[in-house]
Structures are given as structure tokens and as C-alpha cells.
Write a protein that binds this DNA or RNA. Structure first.
Lengths: 190, 190
DNA sequence: CCGCGAAACAGACCGACTGTCGGTCTGGAA
DNA sequence: TTCCAGACCGACAGTCGGTCTGTTTCGCGG
């Protein structure tokens, strides 16, 4: 890679890291481009050279977070043979990860509003949701024709659990409830 | 009621109605206070006399929508004796109502981001979520200690169904899937 | 009937923010 | 060495949310 391209990549990574922190702390609306510029030492022109606008920057941040979470979930189910158990394990891991304020605020709260539900869903499809759907298919726990819709509903339920953990009451109760919920949806173990 | 108070109420209702349409069409960020002022013919001073800020106006709009939806759901389950069936009926009705773009955009997509998840949840508690929780308790389908958390997860799942209907594929599939999902969570009919 | 307080309303104004645009600098290919 | 594309710069325009200082209008006690 040429020195120029390297510099470009480094700049983008730096900006995304800073924006990620600010978006998580103050939300999308509460974060000004100027703050990102100030903290990164970059100029307006430079930032707008790399990203078309504030929403494009947010999308880049979202993609980075989703990719990171995706890797963590894959790692958590490595070695689990039973597809049903892998599903439960992966879901619980996702719930724990979504307990991170960064994930909560960026992925679950702001993303649908900023990008619009369609673009948000398309992003999720490539990460968390895609994996859940595949796992649900492998487990063969629900009728074929419902796989897609049930995967959506399950993911929404899991996300809600993650948000509830932050409310208080500790993660133990939420984990127990989620596991019970999952086993109900998946049906009796064969 | 005095003439002055009447005028105030009328003004608020007018502004809320206009803001509701604009928020639903263009989202919270995409709607400017100026647009609301222009369409309502009101002045800045007048609007800020009634609402502390843009988010307060949004909250008023949200409350109006929630109240309306709440009344519709109550009406839909009137006459249904079996609590379990009432639960299913009410959920399906909520899913249909949430198919309305106004409800989708305002209640499901923008509200958590604009008001923050806590304030949004507090609002839902007084309307849709409160009813769902009560119904779940009456049906005695899930363990006592899980009622609250399961109600949250269920509501999230239902909301997701509503958003999926808008994506396409028609409401029939979503309704069938939701009903199947509900019956799984509620367990076998006693 | 008068006048006073308060609510409703008006609109100029301010600071902050996003996005644009012409221009500069530099790495690397020709 | 020449030259161009991409990285970067910063002044500027336009918009928006919110504030502030009046002005009008209603209700009510004197």
C-alpha cells in the first residue's frame, strides 16, 4: 500500500475511534462535527473529504462496532457442538456485549433513527442478525417459513434485554429470563 | 373553561397535529421548528410559550399518538373473555396499528433516540407496555418472576413485527408468525 | 367602567452548527 | 522533471434551535 493510502486509512481510523467515543457519550445529536474536528486535530475539509456527512461518519462508526461485536460472538460459540446450545450461548453473549454503553447507544438507540430503519436493518443483516438467522436455521427449532420473522423477533427481544440490564436490577435476572424466553421459543429439547 | 384557556388548548392541539405529520414524514431531525411555525402560522414566541423546546414538542406528539393507540387496543379486546386470547388479540391489534407510518416513525424509531431510552420506556409503561404486562399477568402463562422481563421482550418482538410489515411481504405472514411466536412463549394452552 | 396582572403571541436577534468551495501541498507515476 | 490525484486546509454561507424584549388580549377585582 502506498504511503498516501496508508495515511488516508490511518486518518479514517483515528476519526472513527474518536467519533465512536463521542457518539456513545453524547449521542448522535449531542455530538458536533466540530467536537470531532477539535479532538482529532483534523480540518473540516479533510473530514468531509473522507466522509460525505455526519451520517456517513456515523455509519462508519456503526460498521466498526458491529464488526467487532460479530467477531466476539463468533469466538464465544467456537467449540459448541449442539446448534441449539450454540444459539443460546451466542444470544447470551450478544446480550452481554450489548450491555456496553457504546453498543447500546450507537447500535440500538441511535442507529435506526439516524440511518433509517432500512439501512440499519441492512447493516444488522450482515452482522448480528445474519448470524442469528443462520443459527436458527441450523437448530431447526421453528418452522421453515417462520425462520426469518422469528429471527427478527428474537433479536429484538435480545436487544431489549440488553437495554433492560442497563436500567438496573443486574444482569443475572435478565440472563435467566432471556434463557427461559429462548427455550420457550425454541420449543422442548428433542 | 375560560376563553383564554380554550384558545391555548386549541393552539396546542393544532401545533401537535401539524408537528405529528411533519415528524412522521421527515423524522425528528428532518423536521425544523421553522417548518412547524410556517405551517401553523404561529410565531416562535408563541410556540416556545407552550413548549419548552423541540424535544418537548416531540414528547407531546408522542403522548398523543400513544394515547390514541392505547384506546384502539382497549377497544379491540373488549368482549374477549379468555385472558390468553385477549393477549393474542391485543398484540395482533398493536402490530396492525404500528403498521401506520406515523406510529412507526414516531413511536418506534425516533422516540428512543430523541427522548432517551429511559423517558421513552416511562412513556410506554403508561400505555402499550403497561397493558401488555397486565395481560401477561392475567394469563399466568409465564413464571411470576419473569413477567416484567418477558413482557419487555414480547413487546420488542411485536414492535419488530410491525416494522417488518412495512418492509414488504404483506401483513399476513407477519401476523401468522407473530401468533406462532406468541403461542410458543405463552406455552401450551392449558 | 377602569385598570391591572397574566397569559398568549409576535418577531428581531444570537450563537452554534453543518456543509461547501476554492485553494495548497505532496507522493508517486510517467 | 513534470504533472496529477488525493489528502488537507479554513473562510464562508446558510440554517436552525433557542432567547429576549416587547405588544396584544382576556379575565377580574375595585
Amino acid at each position: 500500500m502506498s504511503l498516501r493510502a496508508q495515511r488516508g486509512v490511518a486518518t479514517r481510523e483515528k476519526v472513527v475511534a474518536i467519533a465512536r467515543r463521542l457518539f456513545a457519550e453524547h449521542g448522535y445529536e449531542g455530538t458536533s462535527i466540530e467536537a470531532v474536528l477539535h479532538e482529532s486535530g483534523l480540518s473540516r475539509g479533510a473530514l468531509y473529504h473522507h466522509y460525505a456527512g455526519k451520517d456517513a461518519l456515523f455509519e462508519a462508526v456503526l460498521e466498526a462496532v458491529e464488526a467487532e461485536v460479530g467477531r466476539a460472538i463468533v469466538a464465544s460459540v467456537r467449540g459448541v457442538e449442539d446448534p441449539r446450545q450454540a444459539l443460546v450461548t451466542g444470544c447470551l453473549e450478544w446480550m452481554r456485549l450489548a450491555g456496553d454503553p457504546v453498543v447500546r447507544r450507537i447500535v440500538l438507540i441511535d442507529a435506526p433513527s439516524v440511518l433509517g430503519w432500512e439501512r440499519w436493518r441492512a447493516m444488522e443483516e450482515r452482522y448480528a442478525f445474519g448470524m442469528l438467522k443462520a443459527a436458527l436455521q441450523a437448530a431447526r427449532a421453528v418452522p421453515e417459513e417462520f425462520t426469518d420473522l422469528h429471527a427478527h423477533m428474537l433479536l429484538a427481544a435480545i436487544n431489549e434485554s440488553a437495554l433492560l440490564v442497563a436500567r438496573g436490577g443486574g444482569p443475572e435476572a435478565a440472563e435467566a429470563a432471556l434463557e427461559d424466553f429462548l427455550r420457550r421459543v425454541l420449543g422442548p429439547t428433542p
